[in-house]
Amino acid sequence: MEPTPKRRPGELVFNIAIMLASFGLLYSAYGISGFEALSAPGAVPMATTAIMVVCAVVILRQTLRKGADTSQTMAADILPLIVIVTIAMIAAYAVLLRPLGFLPTSVLFLLVMVRFLSRRGWGFCLAVSVGTVFVIWIIFRLIFAVLMPQGIIPEGRIVSAITSLF
């Protein structure tokens, strides 16, 4: 055990959210089949969500007993800007993946992220992003025939053009 752990910023909110979500899931599990039978499809979900609720309540009690840690702040230790930006970037990537296609989205994502994190020259960032995406594309698309969203670049025709050369 750590010596008298302190409550971190946001911990209380997180644990309350977890508890509320557990209650919601228990309600949803009850809705599957109620107390119909031991073999009902809702039996195990109800049991597990009930365990979640009990645990969440215990965790919340423990959290409330702890004193707040005043040496840490939300912005510095829990959600610094860099984390928020990264999460937003991944979300943007997922949103753009279908309309733009795999190749441009990935290059763009890497370009911005590497630049943002490393602050090195654009040339370096471009080389890293194009190189990485090219290698991933070769492995996934050409070797293992995983079709990524095509988007604005007519990948399918490029591949058949390449294969028809042989």
């Binding site: 007519p154 399918g156 025709r157 058949s160 053009a161 028809s164």
Partner: peptide, 28 residues
């Protein structure tokens, strides 16, 4: 001819589909 066509496509000059079906891989 394939090569020229392929090169044109790679350069982003994809023309409207003129080739006969199927002109690319089919997804199953």
């Amino acid at each position: 001819r394939h090569f020229v066509y392929g090169a044109a496509v790679v350069l982003g000059l994809a023309m409207p589909a003129m080739a006969e079906y199927p002109e690319r891989d089919i997804q199953g």
